[in-house]
Amino acid sequence: MSGICDGRVVVVTGAGRGLGRAHALAFAAEGARIVVNDLGVGLDGTPGPDSPAGRVVAEIHAAGGEAVAHGGDIATPRGAASLVTTALETYGRLDTLVNNAGFLRDRMLVNLDEDDWDTVLRVHLTGHFLPLKHAAAHWRAEARAGRPPAARIVNTSSGAGLLGSLGQGNYSAAKAGIVALTLVAAAELARYGVQVNAIAPAARTRMTERTFAETMAAPASGFDAMAPENVSPLVVWLGSAASTGVTGRVFAAEAGRITVMEGWRPGPTTDKGARWSPGEAGEAVRKLLTEAEAPGAVYGA
């Protein structure tokens, strides 16, 4: 390993399994000290019999690395604040936050109740916002004290948040919100030495191996394209000081492929210079659509 993260302290939420575990192990292999957060809940967000965070910490220790477990609920102010406090009290610093925690409650919109909507947005979107807020407050204080950090935040969106996904209206809305949060945070926090980016990963996790079972299945031999470990090198680089100058971006990561995602920007336009009638507006829109690129297909459509 290159030691690209030697000396850095990295917090990874939802790090007990899947992508989060892969990220934590990859950061540790590159010299970082890790705060492994995991609430230890089931796929639907309900508490499980034990937290897997301790098992990941044991893996890191067995490989010669340093890590500490954190079992707080990062979608609450107290849990998010304690996440930052754990890093500072254990290792004396915080350099990188990887927001990864999440789960699914899939329903078609007409069957999606308010609890399934609220809970998914709470864990994914609020669970990104609150750790980001508390980490940013620490880094702002450091910058104002004359100790500007080389701080990094890596958020986790999804192709569902960029294109939509049938049966996942709540998840898609939360992941789209994470992209907007990333853009705002990158703009607001740059003055304090904080870079903020997002990834839209495709990998085999508890959330995807059922929904996309055939696509996510591991091959009998050869390159395992959907292994979560394939995504982690990009996350580690974005979370390192080597990524200086890269902020406010969204990257898709799948197998051996990395893509810079290019979001909403002005396309074909027309200007009458006065108010349109409804009929005129419709006629103008139809003409503009013949000049516009077709949107990507919604997953599952």
Results as ranks from 00 to 15, higher is better:
V235N: 05
A180Y: 03
A284M: 13
T119C: 02
V84R: 03
G279F: 11
R210V: 12
A62L: 07
A202G: 00
G71H: 10
V11R: 00
A297Y: 03
S51G: 12
S240R: 03
V56P: 01
A294N: 06
G248I: 14
E283Y: 07
A22Y: 07
T76R: 01
A292H: 11
G159N: 08
D118S: 10
R191N: 03
P268M: 04
E293N: 08
G18S: 04
A75F: 07
A218H: 03
V235M: 05
A67G: 09
H23I: 05
E283H: 04
L289G: 03
V250P: 01
A28I: 02
R122D: 13
R17W: 02
Y91A: 04
G48H: 04
D6F: 01
G18K: 00
L238I: 10
R204P: 00
W117V: 01
H128T: 15
T290Q: 09
L25E: 10
R147L: 09
D95K: 02
D6A: 08
F251C: 07
A53W: 00
E280N: 05
I60P: 06
R55W: 02
G239I: 04
P149T: 01
D118R: 15
G42K: 14
A62V: 10
S157N: 07
T85Y: 00
G54V: 11
A180P: 01
P295Y: 12
R107A: 09
V196G: 13
F251M: 10
G71S: 06
K287Y: 11
G45Y: 07
R257F: 04
A185K: 01
V41M: 04
R249G: 08
D38S: 14
D73M: 00
R210T: 11
A62S: 15
L130S: 06
A180H: 10
I60Y: 06
P131W: 01
T13Y: 11
T96A: 10
P149K: 01
D50G: 08
I199C: 03
I4P: 00
A301L: 03
L125K: 14
L288H: 06
L181R: 05
G16R: 00
T259Y: 02
A297T: 15
N230P: 02
I199Y: 05
G48Q: 04
G72R: 06
T259H: 09
N37E: 14
D224E: 10
G102Y: 11
N197S: 11
A29M: 04
F223I: 03
T119S: 14
S2C: 03
Y192Q: 06
A81P: 04
P148M: 05
A22C: 07
R78L: 08
L104A: 12
P295N: 10
E59M: 13
I74H: 08
G102N: 10
D271L: 06
A137W: 02
L94A: 14
A202Q: 05
A242F: 02
V12K: 13
P47V: 02
V235C: 08
L289F: 15
L83F: 04
A32M: 09
A241F: 00
E280G: 15
V194C: 08
V68M: 06
A213I: 01
D38M: 11
E89D: 15
V110H: 12
E291T: 05
T76Y: 05
A29W: 12
V11F: 13
V184A: 15
S232F: 07
T126N: 14
H70Y: 13
K272I: 04
G54H: 11
N111F: 10
D44P: 05
V110Q: 13
